[in-house]
């Protein structure tokens, strides 16, 4: 008997081993390096030294770090609910099979096929304040041209817009799959009971969408916390720190200020924040179900 119990586990282990090895090598090891590296510094001549909490102490009294925290939180507070609402809206729009729906589904998913760097460059050109076609269009319509990426008040909003243009179609796919799994019978039953469209959405669709919504919420938050390409390629964190997301701060610490310890400390902070948020997001959605 004992023998028979153990064997399936060994088989399972060997089947999972390649994936586990990949997970360890490409996820856990880098995380460990970041956790430990946050307590180290590099001497000019390359030797790594133990500095204890110094990297974190310096972060705490660094105004640019705090600005970065503020910008990152603000960005995520706006971009995540916005993207999920839009994705859900789009999923509902393309849910019912009407003649043009396949076209719209494809159209909303199209930005998914363009890489994030390409998306950034595309929108940098389109929204270029002086020579960009969007401002050309505004001028032709008699409207004042906008600074977009180059305006301190507009840069973050532009970033939200571009990230959503790219992301919403992707998240829509998951929510669409969730919608398709809601049994028709429940809607029919609710209709017989006299529930209107809005009531059916609130009391039938939404509760059954908890799992796909939970996944999208956590995955979208993580993706947006790690957003880097448009900041690096287009705004460089500016103007005046308006788009200095934490990921860019980490990049700058490593490759511009040659301070790997601080870069790893910032990465650790990002990891902790994402972990905490994911924990609360999952709990929030679970509690409602209970």
């Amino acid at each position: 008997m004992r023998h028979g119990f153990r064997e399936p586990w060994i088989v399972v282990f060997w089947f999972l081993a390649p994936a586990l090895a990949g997970l360890a090598l490409f996820r856990l090891v880098p995380i460990l390096i970041a956790l430990v590296g946050g307590f180290t510094g590099t001497k000019l001549t390359g030797e790594t030294i133990w500095v204890g909490l110094r990297n974190y102490e310096r972060l705490l009294d660094d105004p640019s770090f705090w600005n970065s925290v503020r910008v990152t939180l603000l960005f995520n507070l706006v971009v995540n609910p916005l993207q999920i609402l839009l994705a859900l809206g789009l999923a509902l729009l393309v849910f019912r099979p009407t003649p043009l729906v396949p076209f719209f589904r494809a159209a909303y998913m199209a930005p998914m096929t363009v890489s994030l760097s390409l998306t950034s460059i595309l929108w940098a050109i389109l929204l270029e304040p002086t020579m960009g076609p969007v401002n050309g269009l505004l001028r032709a319509m008699g409207l004042p041209p906008q600074p977009f990426w180059r305006g301190e008040d507009q840069a973050l909003a532009t970033l939200v817009g571009v990230a959503s243009w790219k992301g919403v179609g992707y998240w829509m796919v998951f929510l669409l799959a969730g919608l398709l799994l809601v049994p028709k019978e429940l809607h029919e039953a609710a209709m017989i009971d006299g529930a209107g469209a809005w009531q059916r959405f609130c009391y039938v669709t939404l509760p059954l969408m908890r799992r796909p919504l939970g996944f999208v919420l956590v995955a979208d938050t993580a993706a947006n916390f790690l957003l880097f390409a448009p900041v690096y390629l287009v705004t460089q964190g500016g103007p005046n720190g308006a788009t200095a997301l934490l990921m860019f701060e980490a990049y700058q610490a490593a490759f511009t200020y040659l301070d790997h310890g601080r870069a790893l400390a910032v990465s650790t902070v990002i990891l902790l924040v994402i972990g905490l948020l994911a924990f609360f997001e999952l709990r929030l959605l679970r509690e409602r179900g209970a």
Binding site: L44, P147, R150, G151, E152, Q236, G237, G238, P239, N240, Q252, T256, Y257, L258
Partner: peptide, 22 residues
């Protein structure tokens, strides 16, 4: 200065921000 890379980048960002009205 041995810190020219940092000097250049920080001043560059400042000048960039100044052109946009900072």
């Amino acid at each position: 200065t041995p810190g020219f890379r940092e000097y250049e980048d920080i001043l560059r960002t400042a000048l960039r921000d100044i052109t946009t009205g900072a």
